[in-house]
């Protein structure tokens, strides 16, 4: 029996009857982080880190039966020891370490190894088997340091401001938005947010995390109010009529996909900033090595390529089909519905 099995409901720990990030409803779900492809509704109980809990409750409803756990805290279920370690992906994101009779598996969820100033810093965990994502598992993806990308965003914002324009930047509402809000140069001007972003901000502020001041974009404001400002919105909103209210604006997209010219050109934004909450190629390979694991399962992204590469450098590696998505540009429709609807 494998310590973790790959079932049609999700990653399953049979000895403990626990699922990790299941995509079908189960009894016990351990959740790596609050993005909707990893944290789904309908489970009877949830366990996640304390700092991931508020967002998960916000998204799935406060009625869910969810319990928080400290990073590094051990929790035993029928002899299986579970512990959560920072994944550096978004606030509260975790890799889940599973140990039974001396054998250790780690399910990474989504991760990024470089600090971003908002998420808890990633730590590699020594294990026998590592289950990794590979959203950007192609050697063409190599990120620049965050400070360099922030400078690019600042320059763009500043120059738009000088020309009396609004800067509208598309970024995932949970994670990247907060990362940008806290790391841009606040002396340039005010930061405005789309409802989907601001709803998440409110939750995160309530849990005691400091976020720089933001102003929610609401109907009926004077256009002049936004001039020179930076507006953070989910990609689908930037592409929609929602952004028409800014009239004279320059559009930008912050995403790892912007590293490739073809994608950049297909998205009709004025600027693309290469900024991702996922590990780039070097981070993926480096992490696999740092875990000292001998077996590597690859769950989503460029799985075939990454797994084949790992095999070629001597690992036992296989692809696991999951329902996690790796398209950070197009998975945010639900946030917008949420922002435009009830909230």
């Amino acid at each position: 029996m494998q310590l973790i099995e790959f079932r049609e409901e999700g990653l399953f720990v049979p000895q403990a009857d626990v699922y990790i990030d299941p995509w079908k409803p189960v009894n016990k779900a351990f959740i790596t982080h609050g993005h909707s492809d990893h944290s789904r509704s309908g489970n009877k109980s949830y366990v996640c880190t304390h700092s991931a809990l508020p967002v998960i409750k916000h998204r799935l409803g406060s009625h869910i039966n969810a319990k928080g756990i400290e990073y590094g805290e051990e929790m035993s279920v029928n002899g299986v020891k579970f512990s959560f370690y920072p994944a550096g992906h978004i606030i509260g994101s975790a890799q889940i370490r599973v140990e039974y009779k001396g054998e250790v598996w780690v399910a990474s969820g989504d991760y990024k190894t470089t600090p971003d100033g908002v998420s808890e810093d990633f730590e590699p965990i020594i294990c026998n088997t590592f289950i990794t994502e590979s959203t950007f598992g192609m050697p063409v993806f190599k990120w620049k340091p965050q400070s360099v990308v922030m400078d690019e965003i600042n320059d763009w914002w500043r120059s738009n401001k000088e020309q009396g324009r609004v800067s509208v930047l598309a970024a995932y509402s949970l994670g990247k938005a907060q990362r940008i809000i806290n790391n841009v140069d606040h002396s340039i001007g005010k930061i405005f947010t789309h409802g989907a972003v601001e709803n998440v901000n409110e939750v995160i502020r309530r849990q005691g995390v400091h976020l720089h001041e933001t102003i929610r974009v609401v109907q009926g404001q004077k256009q002049s109010m936004y001039t020179g400002g930076l507006v953070i919105a989910p990609p689908s909103a930037v592409d929609s009529v929602w952004s028409n209210k800014f009239k004279d604006f320059s559009s930008g997209i912050a995403s790892g996909w912007m590293a490739v010219r073809g994608t950049r050109r297909r998205r009709s934004a004025d600027r693309g900033f290469i900024l991702s909450d996922h590990a780039d190629w070097d981070e993926l390979v480096g992490t696999v090595k740092a875990t000292e694991a001998e077996r590597i399962y690859v769950t989503h992204g460029y799985t075939d390529v990454f797994s084949k590469y790992l095999s070629s450098i001597g690992y036992y590696s296989a692809v696991v089909n999951t329902e996690y998505t790796s398209d950070e540009l197009n998975t945010v429709a639900e946030d917008v519905e949420e922002a435009n609807g009830i909230k």
Binding site: M138, P139, V140, F141, K142, A259, V260, R261, G262, Y302, V305
Partner: peptide
């Protein structure tokens, strides 16, 4: 070759890898 398939431009692929 896989990278080139994904990127679509050989000089760009080289510059990236």
């Amino acid at each position: 070759e896989e990278s080139y398939q994904m990127v679509g431009d050989i000089n760009e692929t080289i510059s990236l890898i």
